[in-house]
Structures are given as C-alpha cells and as structure tokens.
C-alpha cells in the first residue's frame, strides 16, 4: 500500500498511509474507533476507492479494480451470511461465482466444513446457527476461494468473552494452516497483541507505529501508542548524556535512569520516558531509583497495583505478581522506593 489517502468531503479518514504487508503474515490494524482502520481495509477490499495513492498486490496496482476482480476476501463484522442459502451454499458461493465445476466446489466445501469444525452442518440454513457458528461459516466462506489476502473487520466483536478467546486461537491456527495473509482490524489491544505477527497502530488516519507485539509494547514510538496499548507510567526528565542506543535521563521525580533511545536519537533536551508497571518494583525508601509515598493498593487477583505518589506530584504505578507466599506489602502512607530494571525505560519521540 503506497501513500494512500481517503477523504470524505473535507474529512480526511486516511492520511497518507504507506504500509508494507508481507506474504503469509498475520497483520493487524489497531486503533480506536474512527481512526481510519476500517476505511483502509475497505480500500484493500475495493469497497472504497482511495482519493490518492495506490493499493498494490504482488507489485500489481489493484486500486481501480472492482471488489469482485480482487483476489481478496472479507470476513464482515456482522458476518453478512446469505440468509436464503444453506451453510454449504454460503461457503461455496465464491467458487460458484468463479465458475468452478460442481464436484470441485463440493470437495472444497467439505474440506472447509472440517477446517472450521462444522462437519455435517452443511445442509443447515445459516439462520439456525449460533453466533459462534455463523462466525465460522463466514470464515470458511471467505477462505474457500483461497484468496491471496483475507481481510477481517472486527469479526470477534459480537462474540462473548469466552468464545472470543477461543476464536482468537482458532484464527491463529487457521492462518498457520492455510498460509494465507490475514489483515485483521480491531480496537482491542489485547486481541492485537496475542494474535498478530505485526501490528500497525493507527490514530486519526495516520499510522503511528508498525512492529511486532513486543516492539510495540516494549518500545512504543510515541505517547499515543504507549497510552493506547497497555498501562504505562509517563515520567518527565532531561537528557543527561547518551551512548549508542541508550541515554541517561535525569528524572524530575529524582534519580537518574538509563533509557532506550527512539529511532533517530533524542528529540530534545526535555524528554518523556515510559515505564510499564510490571517492569518496576518496590524497594525500601532510599534504595530505589526514586522515592515516593504509597497511595492506593489495589488487588487484582493475579497481581496487585501499588500507586506511588511521586515528589513532583505525579503518580507511578508498580504492578507485582501475587505469589502464594506473598511478600508483606508496605502500608498506605509509607515512604517507599521504586526500582526500575535494566531496559525498563524507553524515551518517546514526542
């Protein structure tokens, strides 16, 4: 996808996006609603035409082709199954439109039914299936014609939590088994992190960062990405010196830490550093990187969050895994230190 833009009237839904999606990867477009991710998906499918730029597939410009001329299939958010057809007829629809012989279609449909665990349900009307089953029919229908790219438009959002979790694993398995490139759209960061090979985080029509789940989580490029994905502590500081990809930062809250530099080096002398709550630990006052006063202690079952009030007025959250032995937690109001592990801190671009 090259320098693609789409505007509706004066509203710029997708702003000069260039993305390179690799063959056979599980690629996710992640962002809050209204960020342009679905519009981007529709331009790949051909339901919207880009105002500017091109959509390339295997180096061929497909921007001006109709949806039915593109070797790309979509799993729709509301499934859009054909209510007047049976499960098997739904799955075979694409192949029938391509003019494949009946015997071939029947063979592929049988294989697809097995793939999505709906063996023996081929003759059922789709209206009699549960939501999870309809979801699987929609998947099978889109996979049956063996598209080059499968587009998934928030397909799990209508399912309940349990079903959603199992479908996440199911999707990952299907992608591995079929070797088809998946482009997945979601606003659910957890979904994106668990399933994707690579993620593009979008906001206001622009791609903010592209990378693996780990890169995006551990080394967020900017404040939006850091804030949107997971929980994050933001610390203000000034640059004290740098060597290679690391820099020393003097924190306003006190102490000096070593933090990773973003691509292109430190942007300016006044910096923001991000630290994930699970990459920090409580220590005795004076023995950590900086000190603070313990505020709320919130128990979450698997872990506990400690809110530490910093001396510069900010709040820093430390997450500790709960263990059976359970180290004694300090009391609210006590002076505590916060120790940051090596590589815990990352400097933001903005």
């Amino acid at each position: 996808m090259r320098a693609i833009s789409k505007s509706f009237g004066t509203f710029l839904a997708v702003d000069n996006v260039t993305l390179d999606i690799r063959p056979n990867e599980f690629f996710t477009l992640l962002g809050p609603s209204g960020c342009g991710k679905t519009t981007l998906l529709r331009m790949i499918a051909g339901f919207e035409l880009p105002t500017e730029g091109q959509v390339l597939l295997d180096d061929r410009d497909i921007s001006s082709l109709l949806p039915n001329q593109r070797p790309v299939n979509t799993v729709f958010q509301n499934y859009a199954l054909f209510p007047h057809l049976t499960v098997a007829e739904n799955i075979g629809f694409g192949l029938k439109m391509l003019g494949k012989p009946k015997a071939d279609i029947a063979a592929v449909v049988a294989r697809m039914l097995k793939l999505v665990h709906l063996d023996g349900r081929g003759d059922n009307p789709v209206t009699q299936l549960s939501g999870g089953q309809q979801q699987r029919v929609a998947l099978a229908r889109a996979l049956a014609p063996q598209p080059k790219v499968l587009l998934l438009d928030e397909p799990l959002s209508a399912l309940d939590l349990k079903l959603r979790k199992s479908m996440q694993i199911e999707l990952k398995r299907l992608q591995a088994e079929t070797g088809i490139t998946f482009v997945f759209v979601t606003h659910d960061q957890e979904e994106a992190l668990t399933m994707s090979d690579r993620i593009a985080v979008m906001s206001q029509g622009q791609v903010r960062q592209v990378g693996s789940a780990r890169e995006i989580y551990d080394r967020p490029a900017d404040r939006f990405v850091a804030d949107f994905i997971g929980e994050t502590n933001f610390l203000e500081g000034t640059l004290a010196g740098s060597e290679g990809s690391m820099a020393s930062v003097r924190l306003k809250a006190g102490g000096i830490i070593r933090a990773g530099l973003p691509e292109g080096g430190a942007p300016k002398a006044d910096l923001t550093v991000v630290v994930r709550p699970e990459h920090a630990e409580l220590a005795a006052a004076g023995s950590g990187t900086f000190d603070g006063t313990l505020g709320e202690v919130i128990y979450f079952g698997t872990d506990t969050h400690f809110h530490v009030r910093l001396d510069d007025g900010g709040t820093f959250i430390v997450r500790r895994q709960n263990t059976r032995s359970g180290a004694a937690a300090p009391e609210t109001g006590a002076r505590v230190g916060v120790r940051l592990g090596e590589g815990a801190a990352q400097i933001l671009k903005d």
Partner: peptide, 26 residues
Amino acid sequence: DLSLERAAADLYATPFKAFRYVTLPL
C-alpha cells in the same frame, strides 16, 4: 442488509450475478 451485496461482490460476483443470486432471491 446492504453488506449482503457487498459480500457477494467480495466473493467474485459481478454486479449482475450479485443481483441474480443474492438481491433477487431475498
């Protein structure tokens, strides 16, 4: 739902076939 015709188009149905196999029967 309009997305039915869209789904048909996505599954290689020409506009005429989408009408013939999806819109008209419904």
